[in-house]
C-alpha cells in the first residue's frame, strides 16, 4: 500500500504557486514541497485545512494506492 496525494494537481488546477499555497495554509514553502513529494505526511489538521482550501474531500487529496490488506 502506497501513500499518494493530489496536491500538485490541485495546485495546478487552481493556478497557484507553492509560495501562494504555503501562505494560504500558513506553512512554509518547504512544507508544501515536502507534502507534494510525499516526503512529509501532514497532520490531520493540516490535511483537513488543505482539503477545505480546495473545497474537496480529504480523500481527494490524500489516498492510498493498492490493496488495503497489504502491509
Amino acid at each position: 500500500m502506497e501513500r499518494k496525494n493530489n496536491l500538485k494537481v490541485l495546485r495546478a488546477m487552481h493556478d497557484l504557486t507553492q509560495e501562494q499555497l504555503a501562505d494560504a495554509l500558513r506553512v512554509s514553502r518547504q512544507t508544501v514541497i515536502a507534502i507534494e513529494n510525499d516526503k512529509y505526511l501532514p497532520s490531520l489538521t493540516l490535511a483537513f485545512r488543505i482539503a477545505r482550501y480546495f473545497n474537496v474531500n480529504i480523500e481527494e487529496v490524500f489516498f492510498y494506492t493498492g490493496d488495503e490488506s497489504e502491509h
Partner: peptide
C-alpha cells in the same frame, strides 16, 4: 528563520 513563519508543523517535526 526560513521565512515569515518560523516554525510550522513539519519544522516542528
Amino acid at each position: 528563520s526560513t521565512g515569515k513563519l518560523v516554525i510550522d508543523e513539519r519544522e516542528q517535526s
